[in-house]
Write a protein that binds this DNA or RNA. Structure first.
Lengths: 223, 223
DNA sequence: GCGGTGCATGCGCATTCTGGTGGTCGAAGA
DNA sequence: TCTTCGACCACCAGAATGCGCATGCACCGC
């Protein structure tokens, strides 16, 4: 984890940086707004600690510029205790959190931990199989980057197959996972949907295992 | 967006709830830890405001139980100003943020906004989707720079969709986040509001995914 | 009244299901 | 090894289902 500390008070900056290094983080330091902004723009940080009152460019402006540039790393602002309106402005500018000066170093560490923990929770849920890409969160699928237009059952089928990649999935297993109880087992709906899905996918990734069911697998097949 | 306020001080609870409702949120209230924990366990909230000192079950325990149960909604803790060790404990227990009492209501609102937008993966207080622009701070929306005149429910609907851009949002999910408990699920209200919103937006950004729900997305979408 | 909201009705059509037909695969026997 | 047979599967096209939308009206608070 790499952290940027932007604080013009040299002692305070070192105090924070030392504590962070102590806690196992990699720390970069900046001492004015412009330097801080430049570093945040060019280097990939997991979190930034940013003083609100900085020479050259103030903290609010720095955050705003980062956000406008699409930089989304968590930012922890340091503010003067009594200027609560600054806090509100900072948060609305895109900061994720703030700590009022003077602070306990331990508190800053706890907040940094919380920020990093939270930021880690946004990994998108994607499954990839060869050229096929499934985004379960968005309920979307694509082949070679081209979005597929799937109906809900087709999507459910693809989803189940991709969640069990490489395994043979039986027809009854599919029925049980795609429908709620009491579905007429003597119908060929699954086969129909497999057919339609194969047609829409274009590529032949759904293998039929005769007598057992279907298996989805990447094409680079050693077997 | 639906918020839970857990605070045993009746006046404070009402003060917060009123301010939140004023800002367009749907608010549920609880007055002790057990009640709060139960509600957070059973209802889907977009954020929780949680006092640390509560009857029956204290705030730290409540958060810990939620996290242990896999509940991941953002939690804003209210703490006494001088007990900074409580803050650290609260954050490490799984709270996302805290505000020290006494606080400015405006500050709590700013922090709630920040929590919700961060939970949705946005870093600034403005969310943009093609020509549509949503200002969560000012509770305003515009298309191509022209301000929209939305009713409160229409705004809530748009807000939720834009906070979950690219994802498919089910009808029940919308109902649960736009209304407090006890709303007739067997009605087509959501569909009607989607229709009204689409008409006001003019552009066709709200895609319906048959059998699943709705998805809002920028039009120039390849990957 | 008026704007905002909730609900009922009915229609159009995408989606899903069904039955049938023809094709394919695999095993067993010649 | 080749042939034959039966089981299994793919595909088609029509039918039925039920989802989503527009419309209009009732209600409620202001």
């Amino acid at each position: 984890m790499r952290i940027l500390v932007v604080e013009d008070d040299v002692n305070l900056n070192r105090q924070l940086s030392d504590a962070l290094k102590e806690a196992g983080y990699v720390v970069d330091q900046a001492f004015d707004g412009e330097e801080g902004h430049y570093l945040g723009e060019t280097e990939p940080y997991d979190a930034v600690i940013l003083d609100i009152g900085l020479p050259v460019m103030d903290g609010i402006t720095v955050v705003e510029k980062w956000r406008a540039e699409g930089k989304g790393m968590p930012v922890l602002m340091l503010t003067a205790r009594d200027r609560w309106s600054d806090k509100v402005a900072g948060i609305d500018a895109g900061a994720d959190d703030y700590v009022a000066k003077p602070f306990h170093t331990e508190e800053v560490l706890a907040r940094v931990r919380a920020l990093i923990r939270r930021a880690a929770g946004h990994s998108s849920s994607e499954i990839v199989c060869g050229p096929v890409r499934l985004d379960t969160k968005a309920s979307k699928a694509s082949v070679d980057g081209v979005a597929l237009k799937l109906t809900s059952h087709e999507f459910r089928l693809l989803s189940y197959l991709m969640h069990h990649m490489g395994q043979v999935v039986s027809r009854t297993e599919l029925v049980e996972h795609m429908y709620d109880q009491d579905f007429d087992r003597d119908s060929n709906t699954i086969e129909v949907f497999v057919g339609r899905l194969r047609k829409k996918l274009g590529v032949d990734l759904i293998e039929t295992v005769r007598g057992l069911g279907y298996r989805m697998q990447a094409p680079t097949d050693a077997h």
